[in-house]
Amino acid sequence: MSVPTRRTLVGLAGWAAILVVLVLLPGRVERGTQEVLLNLLIWVGVAQAWNLIGGVGGQLSLGHSVFVGAGGYTVAMLVIKGGTGWAAGLLGGALLAALVAWVLSFPLLRLSGVYFTIGSSAVALMALAWMVTWEWTGESRGLNIPLEAVPDRAVKFRVVAAVAVLTCVAVSLVVRSSFGLRLMAVRDDEGAAAALGVSAVGVKRWALVLSAFLTGLVGGTVALNQVSIEPNSMFGLKWVVTALVMVVIGGMGTVWGPVVGAFVVYYLLDRSLEDQPVVQALLSGVLVIAVIVAAPGGVVGLVEAAAARVAGRRTRSRAAGPTAAKITSPAGEGVTHG
């Protein structure tokens, strides 16, 4: 379980380079392009953060809208009622989301498999029902952040880019860490992992907390971008449902899967077909089914399979069945490289 330091450093350098490119973008591309990229990056963040617990951890949470909402509402409340700046608000939102996740993990992680999924959706629905009636946070009216308190276009873009890259870095570090290996071991065979002395609940708890922290951070940027927020748009199941679709299409449990999935769903489906809403809904359904039937490893799984075929026999022992890896289980090659 030694951590390959050099490899990690190279990976980090790659992400740093991507971040630099993104940070330099505002002012150098058209506003419209920048807006599209901003929305795409928000989705990358949401999907990637969900991937941490849903893909890498194998816990299909339907409760993540709680963390998007907690992050967003905390930013708005801190800015409006606390008088803090948006940056402190973002951090506060992420911390609160993590705290909520930590508390929720005690009941929720007593459940496994489908029961966890159902339990987490019950939590999400309760949170939505509660937010609609909570007077302190503006009930169903929601909150309106004063325009002068939100960062300008360029700063907002850089913040969103940084958050999105952070989620990707977090996942790529986790899958290479011994913590990540334990998490995947629990996903693949909880009984065997426990027999080897891994505390399944402990590992899952920290994965959930980290995932919630990142989701809360993204939720905060959503609120800053949206300016006026209300319960249905922040706590709605839309967030987690879309994230799930993106991760499945891109490739569950992989670092690039959520990025590719966000691109396919948000850019290729949502934006390109925005004047054909019905076709869009049908197509995303058909695509999800097609991916799960024909390429359960998602787009990334397909690419890896193709790469493995090209690489040939040399790596055969490692690349055995990478397509099925994500779904049927074995440690998820291609991301871990052991």
């Binding site: 058209e30 392009t33 920048q34 990229l37």
Partner: peptide, 27 residues
């Protein structure tokens, strides 16, 4: 070796992504 390849692939993919987006926006 595998590492370099994947880091390069990552960069290439992200560049392609940015370019693709740019191309679509600039009409």
């Amino acid at each position: 070796m595998q590492t370099k390849k994947s880091a390069f692939a990552a960069l290439a993919a992200s560049t392609a992504l940015v370019l693709a987006l740019g191309a679509c926006g600039s009409g």
